[in-house]
Every structure is written in structure tokens, then in C-alpha cells.
């Protein structure tokens, strides 16, 4: 249905557009059907792997391995979960991850919020320079090895600090926070408070912070999700198993043991034992590790969306 109305007279246009609208409404119905069908396919393709993990986690492992589980749980069986809960290492990892995430988020907010607020104040001399100083870190980085050496020199290896400190502040978060404060805490408010004799720290604590619940939520959630799912930093900085994070424990159960079993390498007795265990509990483990975030995020979706949007405007 090409549109060729541009050359016709005015009354002709009206008539044509009427005919067009009848035609296009027929077109539109087809468009809507195809579009909906397309989206249903996308939703199924993206949703099915998650659904499969869920039903496999509550099915009999043998039924899963022989391919009898497709759409619904087969031979309902909660053994996998029982064994996950009996696994000490997973609980140690869980506890550590919860602690690291909470400490890491607190540290993130302590560093980012005051900085972002100060940079949003127009009467701060040199704020352009400081902003560039921070922006520059988005373009260049020292790289993995020099960063590792710094963390090592600070004596942080094999401590919680190696996991939570090196990424505690980022240029992106500072920019997002600054954009928020610029928009939501009017300069006049700070000026009025200054006239009343309040210092900037006091203004930040008493006026800016109470107004910034949404940005605190956004920053905390982004950073928290990142920390919860982080494995690489823990992998390179931690060696004591008691300090392992959940993702590091998962890596051993879901990846390392599978790798050796599928490639047929490493036939040591303990490995075989671990593989047998892994095949029993892998789906339950995935659920236990992912469920907290998957349950919580739909309710906090607007904060996440907000973060992406402010970040993109400023990015």
C-alpha cells in the first residue's frame, strides 16, 4: 500500500485518505497479529530456558537427564534442593555474598552521593576540572595487571576489601547522581540554607539526602546487582575458601566440574564425586542463586529503568 496522495487535489486527498484508512485498518489488523505473534515467539524463546531450569530443578534428575522433562515437572522431586541446602560451601558463599553486597553498596553510596551532590553545585570552583578528572576514567584504564598490583600493594588480597573496594565508585554513577541532584535539588534551596547559616555538608545531609530517595535506590540497586553477580574480582583476589562468594562456588559446581566431565579430563575420585553431585543439584543451585534477584526486580523495575535512562542522557 504505497501512498501516492501527494499530487492530488485537496478533496481528492480526503476521499483517498478515507479509503486508505479503511485499507490500512485491514492492514493494521494483520500488522497487529503478526507483531503479537512475533513478540510471543520472542517471549517464549527468552522465557523457556528459565522455565526449563525451574521445572528441571523440581523434577527427578534421572527424568531430566534422559530427556523426559519438557513442559512440566516430571516425578516431582525436591532432592536437589535438599542437597543444596545441605551443602556447606553454598551457604558460606551465600552469606559472604550478602555481606559483600551490603558493605559494597554502603561504600558505593558513601563515595558517590557526596561527590555527585558537590559536583551538581554551580558555586563550586573547579567543578568542571573535577568532572573531567572523573570522566577521563571512562576512557582510559590502567588495565587488569596494574590494578591487581595496586590492590596487592594495599594489602587487600584475600580480604573482603579486594572485592568491594576496587569498583566502589564509577564515573557512570557519579554522572547519574549529579544529573539527579541538578534536576531535583534546586540551587535556590541551597542558597536559602546558606543565608540561614547552614554549611554545605549540613545542606547535603539535611536537604539533599532526604530528597534523593529515588537516586539512592537506583544507585544501590545497580551496584547491588553487580556485586551479587560479580565473580571475576572474587576469582582473582580471593583464595581462602571461607571467603568465597556465591558466584565463585557456583563456578566450581556449574562450570569447572562440567568442563572436566564433558571433556573427560581429570578423573580424580573427588572430581567424579563432585560431578555426580553437580549433576544432581545444578538446576536447584541455579534457582537458589538467581531467584532473589528474579523475584525482586519486577517490583523495582522503575528504578532500574530510571538508571538506564539518566545514564544514557549523560553518557
Amino acid at each position: 500500500m504505497t501512498s501516492s496522495t501527494s499530487a492530488s487535489s485537496a478533496s481528492d486527498t480526503v476521499r483517498r485518505s478515507r479509503r486508505h484508512s479503511r485499507l490500512t485498518s485491514h492492514d493494521d489488523r494483520w500488522f497487529d497479529r503478526l507483531n503479537t505473534a512475533f513478540l510471543i515467539v520472542v517471549v517464549l524463546v527468552i522465557g523457556y530456558p528459565l522455565w526449563f531450569v525451574l521445572i528441571a530443578s523440581v523434577s527427578d534428575p534421572h527424568a531430566v537427564e534422559t530427556g523426559r522433562v519438557w513442559l512440566w515437572p516430571v516425578d516431582l522431586n525436591l532432592d536437589g534442593y535438599a542437597r543444596v541446602f545441605a551443602q556447606g560451601s553454598i551457604w558460606v558463599g551465600y552469606r559472604n555474598t550478602v555481606v559483600y553486597t551490603l558493605v559494597g553498596v554502603a561504600l558505593h553510596l558513601l563515595l558517590v552521593l557526596p561527590c555527585a551532590y558537590a559536583l551538581s553545585r554551580r558555586n563550586m570552583a573547579g567543578r568542571t576540572a573535577v568532572t573531567w578528572y572523573i570522566l577521563f576514567t571512562m576512557l582510559f584504564s590502567g588495565g587488569l595487571i596494574p590494578t591487581y598490583l595496586v590492590v596487592k600493594d594495599l594489602g587487600m588480597l584475600d580480604t573482603i576489601w579486594a572485592v568491594v573496594v576496587p569498583g566502589a565508585a564509577g564515573a557512570w554513577s557519579v554522572l547519574v547522581g549529579r544529573a539527579f541532584f541538578t534536576q531535583s535539588v534546586p540551587e535556590e534551596l541551597a542558597e536559602a540554607a546558606t543565608v540561614d547559616g547552614a554549611g554545605d555538608i549540613q545542606i547535603f545531609l539535611r536537604i539533599a539526602i532526604p530528597l534523593s530517595a529515588p537516586i539512592i535506590a537506583t544507585l544501590a540497586l545497580f551496584h547491588g546487582v553487580g556485586l551479587w553477580n560479580e565473580y571475576f574480582r572474587a576469582l582473582i583476589y580471593l583464595s581462602d575458601r571461607d571467603k568465597y562468594t556465591l558466584q565463585l562456588v557456583l563456578r566450581e559446581l556449574l562450570v569447572v566440574s562440567q568442563e572436566t566431565s564433558q571433556s573427560g579430563a581429570g578423573e580424580a575420585g573427588s572430581l567424579i564425586e563432585q560431578q555426580r553431585l553437580a549433576s544432581l543439584i545444578k538446576y536447584a543451585t541455579m534457582i537458589v542463586a538467581s531467584l532473589p534477584l528474579l523475584i525482586v526486580y519486577p517490583f523495582l523495575q522503575r528504578f532500574f529503568t530510571q538508571g538506564v535512562l539518566i545514564g544514557s542522557v549523560k553518557g
Binding site: 522465557g47 528459565l50 553477580n229 565473580y231 556449574l254 562450570v255 542463586a289 534477584l293 528474579l294
Partner: peptide
């Protein structure tokens, strides 16, 4: 949006499985 919240380790674990 859901898979965005699944960790890399779990995603690779799913691949292996």
C-alpha cells in the same frame, strides 16, 4: 528483562547443562 539479572556464571552453567 529477566535474563539481565541472571549472573554470567549461571548463564554459562546453563549452557553447559
Amino acid at each position: 528483562y529477566a535474563p539481565h539479572f541472571v549472573s554470567l556464571v549461571v548463564v554459562v552453567g546453563m549452557l553447559f547443562a
